[in-house]
C-alpha cells in the first residue's frame, strides 16, 4: 500500500439536499458480513457512482436500497423518509427505480409489455402511454421492436429496454447496476449519453460501475467500495486523478 489515505468519511447529518442517504448500513448474507458500516449519500440532481471490484458489495448495496436484502443495522433515508423498514413494493411506490445487473428484462414478454411492467406502480393509463412514447423517443430502436419478445433483443437493446423500463416508473432517483456490462464501447457510450440526458430531466442517478473511467466522466461524485467498506469518496474529477483509483480501476 502506498500513501493513499482513506478519505475522511462525510458522516454529517443528512441535509434537505439529500435524495438518498445510507447511514451505517450492515448487510449480511447468512454469516457473511457483506456491507460494513456503509455510509453514503446522493444529493438531488447528482450523478453519483459507486466503484468497486467484483464481489466488493456493489450489487448488495443496490439490493439493500431496494429492500431485496434487509440490512441488519443502519438506516436508509429517501428525502428524509426512512425506507429500510419498507417492503420493496412500498419503496418502488416512492418513485425509486432500479436497472438491475445483467438487465434482467422479462425475456418471454414483448418490449411493450416490459415497459408496461416498469409502470406497474403508475395507475394512470394515459401517463403509461405517454411514458412509452417518451422511451421510444429516447430509444428509437425499441420502437421498431415494440411487439418483439425481449429475450430476442441484442445485449445493447436489452440494456436500453432495462433503462426504459426503469424510466417508466417516473423515478425521482434511478439506480443502475453495471449498465455497461457486456456492451461494446459504442453502445456503452450511447448508454452513458442517455444517463446524462436523464439527469438533465431532473432525475437523480446512482450508478454502480466497473467501468470507472466512463462512470467518473459523467459523475459528479464517487465512492470507492472495497470488501464492503467505503474506502474513499471525492468529486469525480479528483477521483480520476487519485492514485488508488488509477491503480485499481483505471489501469494506470
Amino acid at each position: 500500500m502506498e500513501t493513499t489515505q482513506p478519505a475522511v468519511m462525510d458522516s454529517s447529518s443528512p441535509t434537505a439536499e439529500d435524495m438518498l442517504s445510507l447511514q451505517n448500513i450492515n448487510t449480511y448474507y447468512g454469516p457473511n458480513h457483506v456491507l460494513r458500516n456503509l455510509t453514503l449519500d446522493v444529493r438531488k440532481g447528482e450523478i453519483v457512482c459507486l466503484l468497486g471490484a467484483n464481489a466488493a458489495g456493489k450489487s448488495t448495496t443496490m439490493k439493500t436500497i431496494f429492500g431485496l436484502v434487509k440490512p441488519r443495522s443502519g438506516r436508509i433515508l429517501l428525502e428524509g423518509e426512512r425506507i429500510d423498514t419498507l417492503g420493496t413494493d412500498a419503496i418502488i411506490k416512492r418513485r425509486l427505480a432500479l436497472v438491475p445487473e445483467a438487465r434482467r428484462v422479462f425475456s418471454r414478454m414483448s418490449v411493450r409489455e416490459n415497459l408496461e411492467m416498469g409502470a406497474y406502480m403508475i395507475p394512470d393509463k394515459a401517463a403509461v402511454l405517454s411514458g412509452i412514447e417518451f422511451v421510444y423517443n429516447l430509444f428509437p430502436r425499441l420502437k421498431e421492436r415494440d411487439k418483439q419478445t425481449a429475450g430476442t433483443l441484442s445485449g445493447g437493446e436489452q440494456q436500453m429496454l432495462a433503462m426504459g423500463r426503469a424510466l417508466m416508473a417516473q423515478p425521482r432517483l434511478i439506480c443502475m447496476d453495471e449498465p455497461s456490462m457486456g456492451l461494446s464501447p459504442i453502445l456503452t457510450q450511447t448508454i452513458f449519453d442517455t444517463i446524462q440526458s436523464v439527469r438533465q430531466q431532473g432525475v437523480t442517478v446512482f450508478l454502480v460501475e466497473q467501468n470507472a473511467f466512463m462512470a467518473l466522466n459523467i459523475a459528479d461524485r464517487g465512492y470507492v467500495l472495497q470488501q464492503g467498506q467505503i474506502v474513499l469518496t471525492d468529486t469525480a474529477k479528483n477521483l480520476l486523478t487519485n492514485d488508488l483509483v488509477r491503480r485499481a480501476y483505471l489501469g494506470g
Binding site: F106, Y120, A169
Partner: peptide, 12 residues
C-alpha cells in the same frame, strides 16, 4: 419469468 426483477418493479 424473473421473480426478483418483478419485485423490483413493485410487484407484490
Amino acid at each position: 419469468i424473473d421473480q426478483e426483477a418483478a419485485l423490483a418493479m413493485g410487484v407484490n
